[in-house]
Design a binder for these strands. Structure first.
Lengths: 356, 356
DNA sequence: ATTAGCACTCAAAGAGTTGGAGTGCTAACA
DNA sequence: TGTTAGCACTCCAACTCTTTGAGTGCTAAT
């Protein structure tokens, strides 16, 4: 494995990515920076094929990179990712939105922008609420026997749900209940809102106020919502526009996209490239996925990435993903400069069950 | 145009829908209920072609229905739509969900079910909030200089948004502001929340409390959200699985699906079938769309429908759409049995600007 | 009015042919 | 020993030619 063979491998990958056609020795030999004859290139290519980095669709065709070939290219050969200043500015514009920027909106914009820029499907899995604390619980009368329960986190996430009760509550009952909720939930880390803890809460409650069961149930549901990884998915269309992906597999993939969450979150920090090579998996064959985590403060709180054909201009798209994950990290970390709340509260018991 | 010709047209449509292949005279002649020879069928088919109800892909192929042919079939020939009891039960199960049923959830379930049942894309455009009144406006402190504004309608829709202020509000200011909002917005019909009215409100406010501008802006945004038609779209995949639709057109269509709103809502009451025949439109060529309005009380408050290939088992899918639109009408009308609120309030002025 | 019979049409599928891009191998060369 | 020109070989892709058969329209008989 000498310098020249690596150069030829890189050239084959880039040429194939550019044209989509198997690449022959003549084309490679004519490329600037190679400087040897087609015959020599042929010898090297035969070697690269033996080593498993290239393959031939059929005898009289050019060479195409194998998955192993792509891996080597991405990890060692590719020109190191960089993003010129003007590009950065364009990306910043795509992230921005008129009006104030919420975390949710930021993630949506990033996903949409990523899909547009790369012509791939883009996906973000966000589990940042897990690292915030409940900052406010409210119960709001909203009509006859209808109440809205509202959960607000220190991270700015808001969840609400309306619940129907059997009876109307008196102001006194409402105050009592609100107080109980505030005392037991405000300041508690979202990650600590285990089903178990919520059940304990329900149990402690129910002895006193059976009528409020639907409200408690509502709050349980909201807390489950908060703990769940929120998946944002854009650019399905781009997958369908892509010749080398099987339409049926795309359909199956989109139907199972929830399974992506575990895949996305299993990745470690830094940029990671995965290939769709296992035909049993829900992942599309011949596809590749490029993922990066983003952080909030010290924690990884989400993953963002793109899914596209294996034949992808990695040198172009990886910088986008790097830039966006860094940008999101910066933006959401800065906005939470405010005190991180009461911190982790591992107490699973309740305080002061009301006696209404 | 005699009885038999109509019977033959119907048979061609049904046979073509079943097989996807152009239908020849022999097949039709062999069908039970025809009872004439292939030659006779041929004569009739030639006539039907002259009249514009059938066409031939090429000289030596069978016949295929034209758009006009489908229209006649749907309007006159098709066996009248009906749904056996067991089917109804199945549909009811698909509409249901564990846990309490909100209007939003109902619409989501219906859209998903429709997409699954018909193997088409399903769409619902809901503008029911326009016919409800604001039942509650709340401003909730949610952190340092952060406030959540909350709008609840009599129809059960809830919208929230967090806003960042320059300064923290005193309790007094908050009460004053809440009172002002309650007085000016609660009981007002959502349809009356014109931009103009909101601007007047803002103007009346701003003289007194410039600091609260972001909150007012937030409320304006929420009210715009409420007035907008909410589009629910499911089963894109099904479109891509469909041979006779052009993939590129599907992509274009999905990218422009917002334009559907006007198309959906322009339809009149009752079931309506539209065909994608205009190549300039964003609608997919060779597609058909079946739409029905649903009501809440006396108003049409939304449209639901499916989009699929023109070659569609209309006799099978139309009952689904009819049933769902009726069911949604029933469910959302029943749950709003409660008094319809203060009714239309056409007063666009303000009351009692606070003097804080 | 209906039907059997027949000549006609034409897309689709298969068989044979050709062209050319690309290969591997060998022998000559630096 | 590494590189290169030359050449025979392979095999896909494109093309033509032929065949097949489903389906038609027309005509004459019933």
């Amino acid at each position: 494995m000498n310098e020249r063979k690596l150069k030829i491998l890189a050239a084959v990958v880039e040429e194939y990515v550019r044209t989509g056609e198997p690449v022959g020795s003549k084309v490679i030999a004519s490329l600037p920076g190679i400087g040897v004859s087609a015959a020599t290139v042929r010898n090297d290519m035969a070697m690269l094929e033996q080593l498993g980095f290239l393959e031939q669709p059929h005898t009289s065709a050019g060479r195409v990179p194998t998955i192993q070939g792509y891996r080597l290219y991405i990890e060692e050969l590719m020109s190191p990712p960089s993003l010129p200043g003007e590009e950065r500015q364009r990306l910043d514009e795509m992230l921005a939105s008129q009006g104030p920027m919420t975390e949710e909106l930021l993630i949506e914009n990033a996903t949409t922008a990523l899909a547009e820029l790369t012509k791939c499907a883009a996906v973000v899995s966000d589990f940042s609420p897990q690292f915030s604390v409940i900052s406010k619980v409210e119960v709001i009368p909203a009509g006859k026997r209808v109440y809205v329960v509202l959960l607000i986190t220190s991270g700015g996430a808001i969840k609400n749900k309306s619940c129907r009760l059997e009876f109307d509550l008196t102001n006194e009952q409402l105050d009592l209940f609100s107080g109980f909720l505030a005392e037991n939930l405000e300041g508690v880390s979202v990650a600590d809102l285990s089903d178990e803890r919520m059940e304990n809460l329900t149990a402690a409650m129910s002895a006193y106020m059976m009528t409020m069961a639907p409200l408690v149930e509502g709050i349980c549901e909201l807390s489950r919502d908060l703990r769940q990884h929120a998946l944002t998915f854009r650019g399905e269309n781009n997958l369908f526009s892509c010749e080398e992906l099987d339409k049926m597999e795309i359909v199956r993939f989109i139907e199972h996209k929830d399974e992506l969450v575990s895949l996305l979150d299993s990745s470690f920090s830094g940029i990671q490239v995965m290939f769709g090579e296992n035909p049993d998996s829900f992942v599309i064959g011949n596809s590749s996925m490029i993922v990066s985590k983003y952080r909030k403060g010290d924690h990884d709180v989400g993953s963002l990435g793109i899914i596209g054909p294996m034949r992808l201009d990695y040198a172009k798209v990886i910088p986008y993903i790097e830039y966006f994950s860094q940008k999101i990290t910066d933006l959401i970390s800065e906005e939470s400069e405010s005190p991180p709340g009461a911190g982790s509260d591992t107490d699973t018991g309740q305080k002061a069950p009301p006696n209404g």
